[in-house]
């Protein structure tokens, strides 16, 4: 399906700090409007949901539609409540999930 997603967290963070998280995943985000060389429609295949949890608690969610570009890049912010691990989930049409985890170093 897709290559391993790329996640960028700060090298370390303090408790209470608001940090930026950058995510990038390789995916065609087929809109269902594009035609192949034979003139047939390429079926829609989107990552329709992105969710980020920190220490088991959801901190951010996105629903992505056909107006989101291929290889979706999403950057968002969260306040650091303490040490923990991020869990990022992308859900594809049809229900397949891509899950990536990364710990945050808290000083």
């Amino acid at each position: 399906m897709s290559a391993k997603p790329r996640i960028r967290l700060p090298d370390n963070a303090r408790i209470g700090e608001v940090i930026e998280i950058k995510t990038l995943i390789a995916h065609p985000m087929e809109s269902g409007n594009r035609r192949n060389n034979d003139g047939g429609l390429v079926p829609r295949l989107l990552l329709h949901t992105f969710a980020a949890k920190f220490a088991g608690r959801e901190v951010f969610r996105a629903t992505l539609h056909t107006g989101t570009a291929a290889n979706p890049y999403i950057s968002f912010f969260t306040k650091v409540p303490g040490p923990g691990e991020f869990e990022f989930t992308w859900i594809e049409d049809g229900g397949a999930e891509i899950i990536e985890r990364q710990a945050l170093k808290v000083i």
Binding site: A62, T63, T66, T68, Y73, F77
Partner: peptide, 29 residues
Amino acid sequence: LAPANPHPQIGSFFFTPQSGKATVSSRMR
């Protein structure tokens, strides 16, 4: 929303007080 696209929705983003900032970046078509 992009009203002149074949399907107007681009994306929706959901925040909580823990977000710290209601800021999001991405790329649209």
